[in-house]
């Protein structure tokens, strides 16, 4: 049963991830990304990580992707074609990544069964994983957590500063 669900979610994730870059209409790309986020959330459910499931939907699907759609609808009115010009450099980078993937798989082999067994192994604690995540974040991972929040704060302030237009002085009438 776990294999069926994992296969379904993984398959749809791979398919929609390809569609995000392959579809010509940017709105469809965004929607395909939405479907992908849903299935990633589904994977979290099979891993019994309900908190991550909810956060995945809320943050990625509910907030970030809406902003993508927002931008796409504003910027690509009738001419989405300019997003489909690929430079030769991307072919080079893509080729390098494919070679890397092939090399990695060649070294370790595809251990599909063992990875599924590993994910099923950690028994969910009785208290639920929201509490465990909170405990871990504020004890073992306190420093990385604070660093991450500081980086996000800096990014936020940077965005505010960048988007702030210097309004011309309005002469008092």
């Amino acid at each position: 049963m776990a294999y069926v669900f994992f296969g379904y979610f993984a398959g749809v994730i791979a398919l929609t991830a390809v569609l995000v870059v392959a579809l010509r209409n940017p709105v469809y790309s965004a929607l395909s990304l939405l479907v992908m986020f849903f299935h990633v959330a589904g994977l979290y459910v099979t891993l019994r990580a309900e908190f991550l499931f909810a956060v995945q939907l809320m943050v990625y699907a509910g907030a970030i992707l809406i902003f993508y759609l927002f931008a796409v609808m504003f910027l690509t009115e009738k001419t989405p074609d300019r997003y489909h010009i690929q430079s030769w450099g991307s072919l080079l980078i893509g080729g390098a990544i494919i070679v890397e993937v092939v090399v990695l798989i060649g070294q370790h082999g595809i251990s599909f069964g063992s990875s599924v067994a590993r994910t099923a192994a950690p028994s969910p604690s009785e208290e639920g994983n929201t509490e465990s995540i909170g405990q871990l974040l504020y004890t073992s991972y306190l420093f990385p957590f604070e660093v991450a929040s500081l980086i996000l704060l800096v990014a936020m302030i940077g965005a505010v500063v960048l988007s702030k237009k210097d309004l011309p002085e309005v002469p008092p009438s």
Binding site: L34, F51, A61
Partner: peptide, 22 residues
């Protein structure tokens, strides 16, 4: 009775915007 009930509601409530914007 899932143990992230209120987060579940918030998560799906935030998806309601898709219908409107699309």
């Amino acid at each position: 009775d899932i143990n992230v009930g209120i987060l579940y509601i918030l998560a799906f409530a935030s998806l309601g915007a898709y219908g409107i914007i699309l």
